[in-house]
Simulated scan of single mutants.
Amino acid sequence: MPDIGTILVIILVILVILLVVSLVFRLIKVAIVIAALVIFVPIICTIMWGDGTDYVSKFASIFTPDIEEGISEGYEAYRDEYSKNPVVDMDQVEEYFNQAGKWAGDTIGDAVFPEK
Rank of each mutant, 00 (worst) to 15 (best):
V33S: 06
F63P: 01
D54V: 10
D54W: 04
L23W: 09
Y55A: 11
D51C: 07
E69R: 10
I71V: 13
F40C: 14
D51K: 06
F25I: 12
I43K: 01
K29P: 01
A60F: 02
I67M: 01
K58L: 11
L27P: 00
D66F: 00
I28G: 14
A31K: 01
F25H: 09
C45T: 12
K58F: 09
P65Y: 04
E73F: 04
I62K: 02
S61A: 15
S72E: 11
I34G: 06
S61C: 01
M48Y: 08
L27K: 10
L37S: 12
A35E: 09
A35I: 09
F25V: 12
M48A: 15
A35H: 07
V38H: 00
G52T: 09
M48K: 10
L37G: 14
M48G: 00
I39L: 13
C45V: 13
P65S: 10
T64K: 06
Y55W: 04
F63I: 04
I44P: 06
S61L: 06
E69M: 08
V56Q: 06
I39P: 02
E73G: 11
A35T: 14
V56D: 08
E68N: 13
I47N: 04
E69H: 08
Y75Q: 07
E68G: 13
I47P: 04
D51T: 11
I34W: 05
K58V: 11
Y55R: 01
A36H: 06
F40V: 14
R26Y: 13
V30C: 06
D66A: 09
G74I: 01
G70H: 05
S72A: 13
E76P: 02
D66Q: 08
V56R: 03
Y75W: 04
M48R: 05
L27C: 12
G50D: 10
E69I: 03
V30Y: 09
E73T: 15
I39A: 12
C45Y: 09
P65D: 13
V30G: 03
S72F: 00
V38Y: 06
I28M: 12
I32P: 01
V24R: 03
G70E: 13
F40Y: 13
K29S: 15
D66P: 02
Y75K: 07
V30L: 11
V41G: 07
I71Q: 08
F63A: 15
T64H: 03
I43W: 05
M48L: 15
V33E: 03
A60L: 04
E69K: 10
Y55F: 14
T46C: 02
F59H: 03
L27G: 14
M48V: 15
V30I: 15
E68R: 08
